[in-house]
Amino acid sequence: MAFPQQVRIVEVGPRDGLQNEPGPIIPTEIKVELINRLSAAGIRHIEAASFVSPKWVPQMGDAAAVMAGIKRHPGVTYSALTPNVKGLEGAMAANTEEVAVFAAASEAFSQKNINCSIAESLARFVPLIEQARAADIRVRGYVSTVLGCPYQGEIDPAQVAAVSRELIDMGCHEVSLGDTTGAGTPLKAKQMLAEVTKAIPVQQLAAHFHDTYGQALANLYAVLEEGIAVIDSSTAGLGGCPYAKGASGNVATEDVLYLLQGMNIETGIDLQAVVQTGHWITRELGRHNGSKVAQAWGECSR
């Protein structure tokens, strides 16, 4: 299959990137400015918040205030993670047009992460998805540990396909395939995708690859070659997974954009603006910028 001519970037930095940030709670105005800068750079899908219990995810406790504070650009989707019906109701009250639900391809990871089996987690989503669709809110599904689990090891691609198919059948318009530990390699990524696309058209799939082992860009190239045209990424490589030992951040949006530009694949995004945004947010957080492109270009990007 040929490479896609255009790729949609789903920017997950404001949610996946910030939710596990240690230290003090990040001010709402910083989150709002991050989202506004990203949409001004041309990113058309931003995962902006997570409607979860502040007890469990303190950094996302101001989700409603963030959604109320952002400047909404026409044509930009501002989505939120909603793990349960209560979260969905919060997202609906905040005028969220798309929500996301999470499942795992690993039984062990599901138990460690949300204290229930895969089947139980999927069953919990049924009323949420029904309620969302009744309100004309799109639902996106995530499947984690698609290329390996920190507790279970290798994951059968058929299991990834089965969970992904269930999410589509329940009403998700798209499923994002997550390499939670970043342990995947290009061949494994291709093999996994080959199995999943027996059950779901590639047009309904996205890649959400972490860069723990430095393989994310290679893995993305491999699945782009197979027709994937939606990529999740995080500005400055922010984020990680608290349930996966050693799992560093998501692949950096800047690095993905540089790759796609070099392949003449359109994104509609201003790479320089994203680089500048990555430098700004990492200064605000007092942390290292995980983007190789941002490091190479420096503060005075071209």
Rank of each mutant, 00 (worst) to 15 (best):
A64K: 15
V85K: 14
E11P: 05
F109W: 03
E130I: 15
G61Q: 12
G23W: 12
C241K: 00
P150S: 05
A41W: 07
S234Q: 02
Q19K: 13
H288T: 14
A194D: 14
A244S: 10
T197W: 04
V99G: 12
K190Y: 06
R133A: 06
L224N: 00
G286Y: 09
A236S: 02
A108N: 15
A41R: 05
E154I: 06
A105I: 04
R72M: 06
K71Q: 15
Q152C: 12
K31M: 02
G184N: 10
G184H: 03
K86D: 15
L260K: 00
L259V: 08
A105F: 13
R72Y: 08
A64T: 15
G278K: 02
T82I: 15
G69H: 09
P127E: 08
Y243K: 00
R140Q: 09
R37Y: 01
G153P: 12
P22R: 10
S164P: 05
A229V: 01
E266K: 06
H279W: 08
V10K: 04
N264T: 05
E254H: 04
A296I: 15
W56I: 05
F3I: 09
E11I: 07
I200F: 07
R302P: 15
C149W: 05
S121I: 03
A199P: 10
L122Y: 11
P14Y: 10
A206M: 06
N84Q: 02
G182P: 10
L285Y: 02
V7E: 07
H210M: 05
L259S: 03
A222E: 00
E154H: 11
G278S: 07
L128W: 01
L224P: 02
G240T: 02
D62S: 14
V66M: 11
S164L: 04
E107P: 11
P27K: 13
E120Q: 05
G69S: 14
P242L: 03
L167H: 10
A199Y: 06
A189L: 04
P83C: 09
A108T: 14
L122H: 11
H288S: 14
I200V: 10
G249T: 00
D211V: 01
Q111M: 13
S248Q: 09
L122G: 11
T212H: 01
F125Q: 03
A296F: 06
R44P: 10
G227Q: 01
Q191S: 11
Q152R: 13
